[in-house]
Every structure is written in C-alpha cells, then in structure tokens.
Amino acid sequence: MGAVPERGSYDVVIVGGAIMGSAAAWFLTDMGFDGRILVVDRDMSFAKTATATSTSCIRQQFSTDLNVRISQFGAAFINDLRRYMGGDDRVPEIGIRSFGYLYLADTQAFAEDLRARAAVQAAAGAETRLLTPAQIAEDYPFYALDDIVLGSINTKDEGYFDSMAVFEWLRRKAREQGVAYVEAEVVGMEVAGDRVQAVRLSSGERIACGTVLNAAGPRAGQVADMAGIVLPVEPRKRYSWVFKAERPLDRDLPLTIDPSGLHVRENGGGTYQAGGQVGPDPAVDFDDFEMDHALWEDWAWPLVAARIPQFEAIRLTHSWVGHYEMNTVDHNAILGPHPEIGNFLFMNGFSGHGLQQAPAMGRGIAEWLCHGAYRSLDLSGFHYDRLLTNSPLVEAAVI
C-alpha cells in the first residue's frame, strides 16, 4: 500500500476501499479474475467511513424479498468466514450474536406494515415472529409497552457481528491475492464516448482503466459527477451513543427499534448502544461529523428510559457521528453498470444497510465483471435504469 500506483493502467479501478470496495476486490480475486485491480481511498485509516461508524449488526427483517435473501447470504458468509476464505487458519471464527431486532409498532397502520413485511420474510425463509404486547412482556419483561400494539422479531442470524474483522480480512486477503491499495483521492475522470478512459488522482497520476467501480460510500454522488452522471446519493448524519447501566438487564437486549426512530441494543458487559436521528434529515457536508451533545439529554436518554425504565440510571461513556449513504429515491442499493457509460459501475446508496449487504454485493459485482451476468442472486433490480424510468424499488424497513 502506498501513495503512488505501481502501474499507469489497471483493468479495474475501485474508488473506495472500505467494506464494499474491499468485498468487490476480494470476490474478484476469489473468482479468478484475470486482470489487475487497484483500490483507491482517500484515507486508509477508514476511521470516518460508514463501515467504521456503523452499528455492526445484520438483520433479515426487510420489506423486499431480494434484501432478505441478500442478508441471508451475508449471514452465511459471516458465520463461515474462514471456509469462504479458503480455510485459512489466520481467519477468525466470527459468527453472529443473534439477539435479534425487535420492531415495536404503536399504531395499527404500523402493525399492518410489520405483518406485511413478516409475510415477505417468511416466504424467503426467515424466522420472523410477530408478538403481541403480552408475548413481548413474557420474553422481555423490562419494556414499558402501554403504547405498543405489535412487535416483530427474528433471533436467527440477526444481531451483532464483528464487522471490522470481516472488513479487515476482506481487505487483507484481497491484498495478499494481488490487489493494489493506494491512499489517494480520485479527483477527475476522462470520459470519451461511452467509456471512462482514465481516472486522475490527487497525487497527479493519470490511471487508465478498463472498468471504474464507484464504491465511495457517502461520497458516491461526487464520484459519479466526475463521469457526468447524476447519482441521488447523499451523506446523512446518524448519531450513536454507548452507555453503561447501573442495573444491567438480566438477558440480551434485542436491537430495539422504538416507534420514535431511536434504536438501542445489547453491547456486552453491562453496556448498551443507542442510535438514531431526530427531526429534519438534510444532506450534510462530507466532513461534517460534529456531535450535537444536546440530543442525548433532550431526546435519546428520555426515550431510552421511557421504553426501558431500568435504564433511568445510566452513564454515557462515549458517542460519535457517522454518515448513511442515503439513496434519496427509494432507500435501496444502486448497483451494476451505467446504461450509457458501460464501464462505470455502481456499488452505492445502501441507506444504512450496506455493511450487512457487502458480501452479496461484492459477489454480485464480481460475477458481473467475471461472467457478464449475475450467477447467484439476480441483482438487476438494483440497476441504475430504474432511476431513468421512474421505477423505484422501495425498501420500507430503513432504520
């Protein structure tokens, strides 16, 4: 890894080296891609990426069949990471701490949404259960449920996993298998006709390319603009808080999605993690990670304590701000080739669920580049074309 590419030409240039870009790079090498791959990222510490600032969880509870199946593969990949990586003894056995996601509905309309989603999930093989307030209270007696009419939970392959370990091994194995990583910023592209001919780096180099893959996270719209492409992806702030409870719960806390929009989950050792966003949700500057400290006292803590009265006595230990790469059209991935500039590929717009989708998306992009088609899951529903024809593929279960 360095600041200057060793070559002036690569078959694939991946813009963005966090979990999406590294998943694509690793799957390409694993499928035996016959070409040279360069990953370019402006900050190889990845400290401010959506990967590093995420909730580090995976769920099956989506409103679209394809997203359920994508996360099912993600769970299989996480649970069997070492085998997927060739049985390498250095790769840790990770697994998923499946405490589940618990959606709480406080209106009949929201309850009907949960029922409809559960039917989609069940048809895809997920083990989602709908719970009455009495059933929730029996399994999790610490909640205040006076306003709740229905809950939805799945405790199989749904919960916490060590996302940074998965990311680190995708990146490490990609590099060991010949992928070049360079710390630089792509600042321009040369487009001629229906192809990107080259990218230009902040360090001054011109890199000719066979394919460009946009895996730039919240900066994806900026990267697409260099090729003259409009991409409706924006950075949106999301807040996270970790707190220690004076009286920890006597069982795992599911990742609980309160009707207010706040979520809170088990973190281990008597600590818990809450997160969310309140009020207007505007696009923000790419470098805006400023914490609004009043949100904890004025919004998050009161909601946590109201839903789980045992959490009235807690101590905030640390907090941070991350960004969603929000697809403002339908909150779903934008994947695959541009319909006119055919060697410009998207891997963007995951709207908060990208981390868990990285294995399936990386595999899909690799299949497209190696075979010219998807061979595992048909991901063509995520193609850019739907934006041109005003045919959104809406994902309603966005946290």
Rank of each mutant, 00 (worst) to 15 (best):
M1W: 06
M1A: 07
R7C: 11
G16H: 03
A18F: 12
G21C: 07
S22M: 13
A24T: 15
F27H: 11
F27L: 08
L28V: 08
M31V: 09
G32E: 05
G32Y: 10
G35Y: 02
G35A: 06
V39R: 12
R42M: 15
R42A: 13
M44E: 13
M44Y: 10
M44Q: 14
F46H: 12
A50V: 10
T53Y: 08
S54M: 10
Q61P: 02
V68K: 07
R69T: 03
N79D: 07
L81P: 10
L81I: 06
R82N: 05
V91K: 00
G100M: 08
Y103L: 09
A109M: 14
A116P: 03
A119E: 11
A123D: 10
A126D: 08
E127W: 05
L131Y: 07
I136F: 06
A137W: 13
A144V: 14
D146S: 13
D147Q: 12
D147H: 13
L150P: 04
S152M: 02
K156H: 05
K156I: 14
E158W: 05
F161W: 00
F161D: 00
F161Q: 00
D162T: 05
S163L: 15
L170N: 14
R175S: 06
Q177E: 06
V179Q: 00
E183P: 00
V187S: 14
M189N: 03
G193E: 02
G193K: 03
Q197T: 08
E205P: 00
R206F: 06
V212K: 00
N214C: 05
A215M: 08
R219K: 12
Q222W: 14
A224N: 08
P232C: 11
W241C: 10
V242P: 04
K244L: 11
E246Q: 15
L249D: 08
R251D: 09
D252M: 14
D252W: 12
P254M: 13
D258M: 14
L262V: 11
L262H: 04
E266Q: 13
G268E: 09
T271R: 05
Q273P: 03
G275C: 01
G276L: 01
V278P: 00
G279E: 03
G279I: 00
P280C: 06
D281C: 06
P282R: 09
A283D: 02
A283R: 04
V284S: 00
F286I: 15
E290Q: 13
M291L: 12
L295P: 02
W299M: 12
V304P: 01
V304C: 06
I308W: 12
I308L: 13
L316Q: 09
S319F: 08
Y324C: 02
H338I: 07
F344V: 12
S351R: 01
L355K: 00
A358T: 10
P359Y: 05
M361Y: 12
M361V: 15
M361L: 15
I365L: 15
E367A: 07
W368M: 15
G372C: 14
G372A: 14
A373E: 15
S380G: 07
G381E: 05
T389Q: 15
V394H: 09
